[in-house]
Design a protein around this nucleic acid. Structure first.
Length: 112
DNA sequence: ACCATGACGTTTC
DNA sequence: CGAAACGCCATGG
């Protein structure tokens, strides 16, 4: 098993500043796998066993919707975590998403 | 090797 | 605007 991919994803997620969010696609693109956004989401699925834990609640889909909130156990947990960081969430959707969006490719620069 | 699944994304209707 | 159809790709049965 190649866990390198997961580690990369985790690494990016853990670098997301508090109060900011990013998307699966952005992470995928940053990792050079722009067409593997699903893999990023899939990686998050296993992130619950990652160490240190990954702030997966700061990762949402392209629309800023908490698509994976069902994986947090309690349905409101993901939203609560975001709100506790100053992020507005209404109807499972991040408000002012474009402003809060954190683009790793811009903020961190390309890995390659 | 084939089929099903998925925390995605874009296009089309 | 919402739903569906594709495309994409790794993993598991």
């Amino acid at each position: 098993m190649e866990e390198n991919f997961f580690e990369k994803v985790y690494g990016v997620c853990r670098q997301i500043p508090v109060g900011r969010v990013t998307s699966y696609g952005a992470i995928a693109k940053y990792l050079g796998a722009a067409r593997s956004a699903r893999m990023v989401g899939w990686a998050m699925n296993t992130s619950h066993v990652a160490d240190p834990p990954v702030p997966a609640h700061r990762v949402v889909n392209r629309k800023g919707i908490l698509s994976g909130k069902n994986h947090f156990g309690e349905l409101n947990l993901m939203q609560q975590l975001l709100e506790s960081e100053g992020i507005e969430v209404v109807e499972d959707q991040i408000q002012n998403f474009e402003e809060l969006f954190w683009n790793p490719s811009e903020e961190l620069g390309n890995i390659k």
